[in-house]
Amino acid sequence: MSLLEVAGLSVRTRDGALLVHDLSFSVDAGERVGLIGESGSGKSVTSLAVTGLLDAGLDARGSVLLDGHQIVGAPDRMLRPLRGPCASIVFQEPLTALDPLMRVGRQIAEPITRHRGLRGRDLTRAVAEALDAVALPGERIARSYPHELSGGQRQRVAIAIALAAHPRLLIADEPTTALDVTVQNEILDLLDHLVAERDMALLFISHDLAVVSRMAQRVTVLEKGVAVESGSVGDVIAAPAHAYTQRLVASARLLDDALDSAPSSSNSPGGGDDA
């Protein structure tokens, strides 16, 4: 059985606009799956729907089985024990995901206490280990407030919080979009390493084909809430079947090619004349 099994998921707003339509995909234990889509594709709504975090104004239908538990329509008290040990999310903007008025150490300690019941010295040690796992110098960071950290450090803290309860599925929703390229690279390396080390499953959500292709084995492409194509990353990028995927891949390819064909002497004309 899959760790996450989404079948016929539809999400609509109160006045009937469809944000996600009849979406099905699955993530097996230890597997890495990507969701690719541009703005308005419903990818973030999907990430919220699979953890039961949808806005009250949104209505989900269909089935989302997380480790065998039905998420759609389940009351919050049933979902709470699943969030953490079963699945955790890392969001795009670490600054809004963290509490600005609480020291980082306490924010990491909270889920550790809740899910692993640690207190006192054990808790302090667990927080230090959690920070160590995301390659942050423990002592100083634990005493800092979120605004005292850089964007990359904040995202590492968010990852540490997400990992505190040892989830079996990590959902990363555009985790590097707000970051500088070199920092993005480091965070992707970190996620890569952590997912492998802890044998977690990963649901990686992004608009960036190159980033998804680096993180996932299989992908599902979303266009306006509809899954238009799924398959192995290599196949989808090498031979996209659906018109939208073709457009997406062609655009990404154009930009990627520009990196190789940029003029080497200042006198030659600018990049490839294409499109």
Binding site: T13, R14, D15, L19, S39, G40, D55, A56, G57
Partner: peptide, 11 residues
């Protein structure tokens, strides 16, 4: 693009 928040606000 359907804005979920705007839609929820409509009634």
């Amino acid at each position: 693009i359907p804005d979920a928040a705007a839609a929820a606000r409509r009634p």
